[in-house]
Design a binder for these strands. Structure first.
Length: 539
DNA sequence: CGGCTTTGACCAGCGC
DNA sequence: GCGCTGGTCAAAGCCG
């Protein structure tokens, strides 16, 4: 028996459950509201049952929707089983009469599924019968019933497996979130010591203490209340998952004008200056002139740069007067379909959730660059983790260039094995994957924020796999007790990163905020028609 | 009419 | 010092 979990990046995916158990009836169950639960049981031409069937139902990339859909799916599968039982009990006699019919029979039945809240009239079951005539028909009916019983047993077993997997993921999230919370609390307990370190560090410079913060997740207007540390932001987000509206809360990436105590990665003035000039380059495939990053930009110049026939366009942020953020957009000379967007500077104003995605990503990348020695193992690890946690939706690579005039972090989103991962909108516009990530509300049963991060990680790490790859990677998983190895590795990597580098919290916070940031686009994400499928195989 | 894009000019940094 | 290059400015034009 094979289960395939197929996902897409646009909000609707398909969970396919392939069953090798022979089935007699071809049933198709659908319900309203855009969802589809479909069981396909292909029959051979001779009318005998055989071959693998598939059960498909939609799964969104939306964690909350995923959880809900998964629950629905589990419930729906029971519905299928129940209805098949119902079918057996109530219609069996009539069914046997109908088996003489030579062609498939489609019967619409009104169903009552109170647990799903589905209107009776929206739920129909279509049953196709492929039967032989004569004496073989009765045998086929009996075989079919037996096969159906076996199928029901298999489905029940699958339900248990899926529930086990869901429970496992939930527990993993909870454990990791607890770990994160513990680390955050430890960090909060020692701000004074942290400040004293800063004082000692600046003492030789005449006591002039320069607020150093590249990554600032707090709002301008309310520094005290929001205590613009990523820790506070993270905890607040965790504690109030229902009100996670980054934009409305005034969160944005901007230069810290306030309390140095809240500076996360402390740095020298030289470093600060360097960080202000630090650039984050995003490579993505897009037919659109620019990527949709949520900010408002005004073009102020265009140049033909040396070595690239494609002109380089210069934009500056116009969301607030005096915002120093600028970006350069240029197509790759080697591959014109690749759009290279380079961001520089930090916003001095709150950002809309959609813009938080990119801003957080770039800021996180830049912070990663300066979170300790970039040449150290930590730095490399963080960069590696950045590419996995901040940009888990693709096989993106975060690289740091020291040869450029200014330090440049390059996030390559073009190396996905599946070109659809580039999140192109129907209009061909590229949307930063974070928006797809951020568009995902919290699963109700999962811990907020961090759990979502990991959920996204696991989801998108899966997105990198083709069906074959997935099958190869998870040939015989044991869903009751283990989670996918990629998720496990990612969790381990996250844990190691957190424990290895205190500055990583800043990066992590930005990454999490990135994912939270685009919540308002959750609806839009479902409009994405581009389907990127992943597949887990359960044997 | 305001906002935006286009585009040539200007400036600064850097290497030779 | 000169030339090259990247980056920015600002006037002109376009557009809704």
């Amino acid at each position: 028996m094979t289960q395939s979990y197929m996902d897409n990046s646009g909000g609707i995916g398909v969970l396919t459950l392939d069953t090798s158990a022979p089935l007699f009836l071809a049933t198709s169950l659908s319900y309203g509201g855009g969802g589809i639960l479909k069981r396909k049981q292909p029959m051979d031409s001779g009318g005998h049952h055989g071959g693998a069937g598939t059960i498909e139902f939609p799964i969104s990339l939306n964690p909350r929707r995923d959880a809900e859909t998964a629950n629905e799916a589990l419930t729906s599968k029971r519905v299928v089983a129940d209805e098949v039982d119902f079918f057996s009990d109530e219609k069996k006699k009539q069914k046997k009469k109908d088996t003489i019919a030579a062609s498939p029979v489609e019967t619409d039945l009104d169903l009552k599924v109170p647990s799903l809240g589905i209107k009776k009239e929206d739920l129909t079951i279509q049953t196709g019968l492929h039967l032989c005539n004569g004496d073989t028909a009765k045998e086929s009916v009996d075989d079919g019933m037996a096969a159906m019983q076996a199928e029901l047993a298999c489905m029940n077993e699958e339900n248990q497996k899926l529930r086990g997997m869901l429970s496992q993921v939930n527990s993993s999230y909870s454990a990791l979130q607890m770990h994160l919370a513990t680390l955050m609390q430890q960090r909060n307990r020692t701000p004074q010591a942290h400040e004293e370190k800063i004082d000692a560090k600046n003492g030789d410079q005449g006591g002039a203490r320069v607020p150093m913060q590249f990554l600032d997740l707090g709002p301008d207007a309310d520094v005290d209340e929001h205590s613009n540390s990523s820790t506070a932001s993270l905890e607040r987000s965790s504690s109030t998952p229902e009100n996670v509206e980054v934009g409305s809360m005034g969160y944005g990436l901007h230069k810290n004008e306030g309390n140095p105590r809240e500076a996360l990665p402390t740095a020298t003035a030289e470093q600060e200056s360097t960080m202000r000039r630090t650039r984050v380059s995003v490579r993505a495939r897009s037919e659109a002139p620019t990527i949709t990053d949520g900010c408002q930009w005004r073009k102020y110049g265009q140049k033909i740069a040396k070595g690239n026939p494609c002109p380089r366009a210069y934009y500056r942020c116009t969301m607030a007067t005096g915002c120093p953020v600028r970006k350069q957009v240029q197509r790759c000379a080697d591959d014109r379909s690749i759009l290279i967007t380079t961001y520089e500077g930090t916003h001095n104003h709150p950002l809309p959730p959609a813009a938080m995605a990119m801003a957080s990503a770039t800021s996180a990348a830049a912070s990663t660059l300066f979170s300790g020695s970039t040449s150290s193992a930590d730095g490399l690890m963080n960069s590696n983790f950045l590419s996995r946690a901040v940009l888990p939706c693709s096989s993106s690579v975060a690289t740091i260039s020291a040869s450029a005039p200014f330090p440049t972090v390059t996030l390559d989103l073009t190396q996905s094995p599946d070109p659809l991962q580039s999140q192109r909108t129907p209009a061909g516009q590229f949307q930063f994957p974070f928006q797809a990530l951020g568009a995902l509300p919290q699963p109700p049963s999962l811990p907020p924020v961090f759990g979502q991060t990991l959920l996204n990680q696991s989801r998108f790490s899966g997105l990198q796999m083709s069906s074959g790859m997935a099958a190869a990677q998870f040939p015989h998983p044991k869903p009751q007790t283990t989670m996918p190895s990629s998720l496990e590795e990612t969790v381990n990597a996250a844990t190691a990163a957190i424990t290895a580098d205190p500055n990583f919290t800043a990066v992590l916070a930005a990454a999490i905020k990135s994912i939270i940031g685009g919540n308002d686009q959750a609806v839009d994400s479902s409009k994405n028609d581009n389907v990127t499928k992943k597949s887990y195989s359960l044997q």
